[in-house]
């Protein structure tokens, strides 16, 4: 739904790890903030950054499609059933929306908006390869990085193969539009070849990986690795301190 868009704005030029630590730190911090206005201030700041980076247009739609159903559910569940509800803001026949629940819902919605916006910004301005290379250079296992990249690539690959399997089984008379029982059987006849084929392929891949230094010890090179300079180091530390400050305030 959202992926890397090439560009050379100030966000594109930052190290992937810097962007990841800010996304993580801000997302964690808003969950420590008790008041809705604080959270929405953060959302506003992130939104401003987005606009400054010229990325706002790309983010509005994906953010909205996720936030809207959450918003509706929160309004109903929290507005109607929050145990703290005492003040009624709106009555519709037998149901009454409580102010306390709505406020709590707005708080949670703000937190979600922060998570969505910060991570979307990261993904829009960073290739997965830059991210795993950055993480590997900071000590995360390169095998874990491989698994992330390969998983991102395999999902569309397997979806393509599932179409081939669907064609194959239909050619043998499989009906995918029958009763529920028939459709459950169809599910098994589609998933079966997909799984077995993928596992047999993974055996070949394991050998190929092993022969290409997958288990090699010692230093690795990362062609996608970006510069990690003073600005980045400062930014990562600031992100960490921000979270610690929020945690301190919460505990005190």
């Amino acid at each position: 739904m959202i992926g890397y868009a090439p560009g050379d704005g100030f966000l594109h030029r930052r190290n992937a790890v810097t962007k990841l630590s800010w996304a993580a730190s801000l997302s964690a911090t808003v969950f420590l903030m008790p008041e809705a206005w604080m959270v929405w201030t953060v959302v506003a700041l992130v939104a401003l950054t987005t606009a400054a980076g010229g990325l706002a247009r790309r983010l509005i739609r994906p953010t909205w499609t996720i936030l809207l159903p959450f918003g509706i559910s929160l309004a109903v569940l929290q507005g109607l059933f929050n145990p703290d509800n005492t003040t009624t803001v709106l009555s519709l026949g037998p149901v009454a929306f409580g102010l306390e629940g709505i406020v709590h819902g707005v708080l949670i919605l703000g937190r979600l908006a922060t998570v969505l916006l910060t991570f979307f910004l990261l993904l829009l301005t960073t290739t997965p390869k830059q991210l795993t290379a950055g993480l590997a250079a900071r000590g995360v296992s390169p095998r874990f990085g491989y698994a992330i990249l390969a998983a991102i690539e395999f999902v569309p690959d397997m979806q393509r193969r599932s179409q081939a399997v669907l064609a194959s089984q239909q050619a043998r008379g499989l009906d995918v539009k029958g009763s529920l029982g028939q459709r459950v059987k169809a599910f098994a006849s589609l998933l079966g070849p997909l799984i077995t084929g993928a596992l047999i392929a993974s055996d070949t891949r394991a050998m190929a990986l092993e022969a290409r230094g997958f288990s090699a010890r010692g230093e690795r090179t990362h062609l996608a690795l970006e510069r990690y300079g003073t600005v980045d180091r400062t930014a990562v530390w600031t992100a960490g301190l921000l979270f610690l400050a929020a945690l301190g305030l919460k505990v005190l």
């Binding site: 397997m158 998933l191 092993e210």
Partner: peptide, 21 residues
């Protein structure tokens, strides 16, 4: 093992494709 690391992305793929099917 390397075999397991090669298996993991396949497992992720199966999860997602299962949901799509």
């Amino acid at each position: 093992t390397t075999r397991a690391w090669a298996l993991i992305p396949i497992g992720v793929g199966i999860n997602v494709v299962g949901g799509v099917l």
